[in-house]
Structure formats: C-alpha cells, structure tokens
C-alpha cells in the first residue's frame, strides 16, 4: 500500500495521469471503501502491540477453547489463547507477506517483462526461456532449498514467495508490451531520440498498469494462502506466531467443535480480500490511460 501512496506523491508533481486517476478513483465509492478498510487494517496492524488485549502467546490451558465472551471477544483457541489477539497479530504477518511478497513480484515481473517485450528478438527469446525454466522448477523444492541453505527467516519467506510469483507477472507484462511497442506514440518517442529505458518507464509501464493491477490483487490473496501452506509444512513462520492463513488451517480442523476458530479469521481474511479486489477494480478503471482521453 505504502508503495502506491508514494507513487501518488511523485505523480502529483508531474504526470497528469495520476491526478486524473485520483479524481476518477474518488468517484468510485466501492473502491474508496476498499482503500479505507485497507488503511485501517494497516494502522491496526502497526498498533497491534499496544492495542492487543493479551499476548499472542499467552495461554490459559485450563480455559481451553472457549466461545466468545466478555473477556475474550472472539473466544479462545484450544490452548486458551485469545483469538482477537491472535487475529490481530496474524494480520501483521499476513499483510506483510501479502504486500512485501507481491511488491517483490511486481518489481521483478514488471521490469523483466517490459524489458523483454520492448527489446524483442533474441533478448526476448532468451529472457522468456529463462522464465520457462523457472516455471518448470518445482516451487516447493526451490523454497525448501532456500530454507535449508539460509535457515528460517520471515524476510526470506517473503523474498522466496515473491521470487516465485513474478513469473506470471513477467509474462503478462511482456504480452502487453509486445502490442504496445507497435503503437505510433512509441515510434514518435523513438524518433525524438528518447532512450529505451525512458520509453519503458514513461510510456510502456503506465500503459500496462490495468492488467498488472488486476493480477496484483489476485496475487496478494494467493500469497497469503501460500504462506499458510508453507508454515503448515514447517517452512514458514513457526508457533506461537500466527498468520490468518495458519489460523484458518487450524480452525478447519476443529470447525465442528469450535466454529469460532474458523469463522473469525476467515471473516477477517475475506474482508481484506474484498477490499483489495474493490480497490484493484477501481484502480484499473482509474488508471486506464485510454479513459483519460474522453
């Protein structure tokens, strides 16, 4: 999120595309709602250590799994840990994984795809074959290898997931760029002597934003779930820490006896994903450069 805000700031000074986009986004109530929810969640995640009613590891074994009550608003898990607290702390991990891993994927994917698409020919062929090779590499083995070599580390987890997720992004961007570089305005840019890097930055990337944003909103949830899967296998975050994905996977196991262990984290994840999707939808419409011409 902070990334996008930074982009706005930079945008206000220069290109009018960003100003236009912001105006158009403001008209989209659903997208604004999504943005608010996300900002609220980020603030909440940042303030969790001060706001959380209990420690995320604090157990009350004798209490066990208790339904929601005045002391524990969202109930407790089977070790008597407060669910509200665990969901709040889980949000820190999940949001961080979601945003950082996606940002990594975005950065690598967009640049890589744009360069490959713009250069074309042998460079393109070479770069895309590398993507194909990485695609063929079993993802799990890759991550396990990383973990074995570097040990367990949340930051590494972000990078590992990001390093895998950029492949699809690169392909999407490359496809877009292939069609864009045939456009007249690119030829015009070349004719006035702009370098390839400037063209990619000023003309190509802004024009690929639509599909990229849509794909990004899809990447964030899949990354969050991937984290849960890895943690479950012992490769991600370790107990007593938690994340939404992990809370859900534990909740599923006891959903018949203690439904609140599944419902609340599930609800929280769903709300976040909805917000992301609405915002992504709104951003795509707002950032469509063709729309600015009407």
């Amino acid at each position: 999120m902070s990334e996008a805000i930074a982009v706005y700031k930079q945008a206000e000074q220069g290109s009018s595309l960003w100003q236009d986009a912001w105006h158009r986004l403001q008209k989209n109530k659903l997208a604004l709602c999504g943005l608010m929810v996300l900002i609220l969640e980020i603030i909440l995640a940042l303030l969790t250590p001060w706001l959380a009613p209990y420690g995320y590891e604090q157990q009350d074994l004798a209490l066990g799994a208790a339904p929601p009550s005045m002391e524990h608003w969202l109930g407790t898990d089977t070790l008597g840990r407060d669910m509200l607290t665990r969901i709040m702390y889980g949000g820190r991990v999940s949001l961080m994984v979601g945003f950082i891993a996606t940002a990594v994927a975005l950065l690598i994917g967009v640049v890589y795809g744009a360069v490959a698409g713009y250069m074309g020919g042998k460079v393109d062929a070479l770069m895309m074959r590398l993507v194909d090779i990485l695609y063929a590499l079993p993802f799990m083995i890759f991550i396990i290898l990383l973990m074995v070599i570097f040990g367990q580390n949340i930051l590494l987890l972000f990078l590992a997931i990001g390093a895998v997720e950029w492949l699809t992004m690169a392909r999407i961007v490359r496809g877009q760029v292939l069609s864009l570089r045939q456009q007249e305005y690119i030829e015009a840019a070349i004719s006035i002597g702009l370098g390839p890097w400037t063209i990619i930055r000023r003309h190509i990337i802004p024009n690929t934003l639509g599909p990229v944003i849509v794909y990004t909103t899809l990447t964030i949830p899949s990354v969050m779930l991937l984290e849960a899967f890895l943690s479950f296998l012992g490769l991600g975050i370790q107990p007593p820490q938690s994340s939404w994905g992990l809370l859900i996977s534990y909740g599923v196991e006891t959903m018949e006896e203690y439904p609140w262990l599944l419902i609340y984290p599930g609800l929280k994840l769903s709300i976040t994903l909805f917000a992301l999707n609405f915002l992504g939808d709104g951003l795509r419409d707002a950032l469509d450069p063709r729309a600015s011409k009407d």
Partner: peptide
Amino acid sequence: RKVAVAIQQ
C-alpha cells in the same frame, strides 16, 4: 504441535 506450543509457553 499443541504439546510443543504449551511447553514452549
């Protein structure tokens, strides 16, 4: 896992 988490705490 449950036993380990309880003992950890």
